[in-house]
Amino acid sequence: MADQVESLVEHGNIWFPDAAGSMATKVDFLYSVTMWVSVVIFVAMFLVGLYFVIKYKRSAINQKAESHVTDNVRLELAWSFIPFVLLMILFAWSFRDYLDLVIAPPDAQEIKVVAKKWLWEVEYPELNMKALNEIVVPVSTPIKLTMTATDVLHSLFIPNFRVKRDIIPNRYSTLWFEAIKPGVFQLFCTEFCGDGHSEMIGIVRVLSEPDYQEWLLAGSEDESIPLDELGKKLYVSKACNTCHSIDGTDMVGPTWKGLFNSDRNLQSGEVVTADDNYIRESIVYPQVKLVSGYQPVMPAYAGLLSDRDIDGIIAYIKTLK
């Protein structure tokens, strides 16, 4: 299983990242056609303009224009009609591709996504599994994401597949794709959603059929690694790092450095010690004891983390002195 997220910049051509979705080559092809036709017209206009500027440059102060032609009906009809025809071709072509791009095949496998400030909650209904910031899918299988948001607008964008769709609270929106090769691909939020917007990113892990079967059997947990290392992994994979630093920097939420066993000044005026139970509660139900000076923006992780995950995060926080 490759773990490296594929670079958008290094792979693919100068314009686009690597085409890893079934629709990507179609989109890229239409873009190339549109761009090259545009370039030809643009360069022609540029050369005509440049020629006129050089050829008809005023050489004497009182020089008059050589000709005062102000109308040419044929020419004007031509440059109204030709762009019209070209644009209509582009319109029809892009609309046809668009329908393929947005209408999911009926046999697509469904995955649910809940977007919230600032993480992606991924649920596999058929597997009864939940995960954060990572969508695992088999290659060459149509996948349909059914998405909703709990707070503000978000938008899910996977550049390698050329798909994007806004996500709206209290409403389901859908997006489909079919990966044509295994790999790990970048996923972005592209609708501005506040302080952590630019860190609301995740990955799509596309597995070959045998790897996918293995992943299904293995489940998501690895019991063998020590608790604090598990916590260190979860710090990134569960998006804690979007809001909590480990080096003392103040971000959206309090830093984890030196957090354990420190005194916390709550908004209620109370002072509590950050012991195991306090941290556990603050992960599962973050709004219950809010530290003063911070907004109540953290989503509740109840049901999203196993007991061992929570133990792991607490163990990791203890190492950050």
């Binding site: 629709m23 873009y31 549109t34 582009l90 072509w93 892009s94 668009y98 050329r162 798909v163």
Partner: peptide, 12 residues
């Protein structure tokens, strides 16, 4: 702008 007005291209 024409590129962005094209539905399938605008999605990306």
């Amino acid at each position: 702008g024409v590129v962005l007005g094209s539905l399938s291209l605008d999605v990306h």
